[in-house]
Amino acid sequence: MKVTIKKWTGVATWKWVANDDNCGICRMAFDGCCPDCKLPGDDCPLVWGQCSHCFHMHCIVKWLQSQPVNQQCPMCRQEWKFNNK
């Protein structure tokens, strides 16, 4: 072997990939954070429902807490279930 790789340090950036640009609840961009947070990133994650809709985690949790009876997706009115695929 003339040239062997001893070690390689990769650099990558990550971004959310959602089916929409904005959170349907707070209307803030997914690249940004929910209105209660200061900084986007790991501390203000996105979550997906089984209906495939996506929100800031903080936003949907707040929404679900405000709905005492039927826990529905605010977009499609299906029953809300976290998608833990």
Binding site: M1, K2, I5, K6, A12, T13, W16, V17, N83
Partner: peptide, 22 residues
């Protein structure tokens, strides 16, 4: 581990240590 995130590799920032055997 992280659902819904997309990775973009920034190759111009990566670096490697090579052993030159020739």
């Amino acid at each position: 581990r992280f659902n819904g995130r997309k990775l973009t590799w920034l190759h111009h920032l990566c670096q490697a240590e090579l052993r030159l055997g020739h």
